[in-house]
Amino acid sequence: MLSFSALLRALPGNIAQGMIWGIMALGLYITYKILNFSDLTVDGSFSTGAAVTVMLIIAGCPAIVAVLIAFVAGCLAGLVTGFLHTVLKIAPILSGILTQIALYSINLHILGNKANQAINVNDYSLLLTLRNTKMAILVALIFAAVLIAILYWFFGTELGSAIRATGNNSQMAKAQGINIDKMKVIALSLSNGIVALSGGLLAQYQGFADVSVGRGAIVIGLAAIIIGSVIFEGKNKKEINFSILLGSAVIGGIIYYISIGIVLWLKLPTNDMKLFTAILVAVFLSVPNLSLGKKKEDKANAGN
């Protein structure tokens, strides 16, 4: 019953959703890779972005403005984590967890004390929707490209370089006269702003915001970053352009969602979906490391 063309037809939707989570991974990239800060705020700020966007669009705000305000809301969430860490001296992971917990209640309030709020594509003009997946890919692609361009520029400026220095070697950065606390707060805000923006995109795409939509976002984001870096960095440790590294996170998100698409398409026992998704991602991650050159070809053929 499995038809390959069915998988191909499902591909645009998987790519679109993967790109939206890939944009989320771009935000996570700033804290995880550049700042070297394990930030767990994202599970909360992703939902915040979804909630803010949906409520604003329902209130009559244009979708693009709603998404930008969601970005600002995400920045505020990052600011709180930054405050907990730099001013109250709470450890990075715990700062993120505290903000994430607090955001659960705040997100409920944003959603009008409801766990779920619909935003039906029939009634509202949305930037992107599951109804039209090819258009959704285009919109997500534009967002990803603009964000990558802005981040590429930003991390080349003096301020961006100072953030990178803070992530590389905070003692050294401090010795150079960089205010590392300030850099951490800026990076956390920017990161969570982008995460919230992608939450706003996902809410429109799927047609609803759910208070628990961000649950596990950090896992998907990390998976996307690591899948992307495995594919692009591989074994040649040459200097890779920063914009390609950022792009690889988005592509990692796409591969993650294509993996889920393949698992669904194979019609495996439904309760095992998460198990097989994990296995398939593990396969993606290990392929470049397991085989080299000619051996790879042999293996690929033998496997079938």
């Binding site: 069915a6 037809r9 499902a10 591909l11 939707g13 998987n14 959703q17 599951l130 997946t133 996902l202 795409y205 799927q206 047609g207 609803f208 759910d210 628990s212 939509v213 649950r215 596990g216 969602y257 889920i260 698409g261 669904l264 398409w265 439904t270 309760n271 979906m273 998460k274």
Partner: peptide, 17 residues
């Protein structure tokens, strides 16, 4: 599996099929 965002992935798959 409790992941509301996966509903969209599955719905997309059904429409594609």
């Amino acid at each position: 599996s409790g992941d509301s965002a996966n509903c969209a992935v599955i719905a997309n798959q059904f429409v594609a099929n």
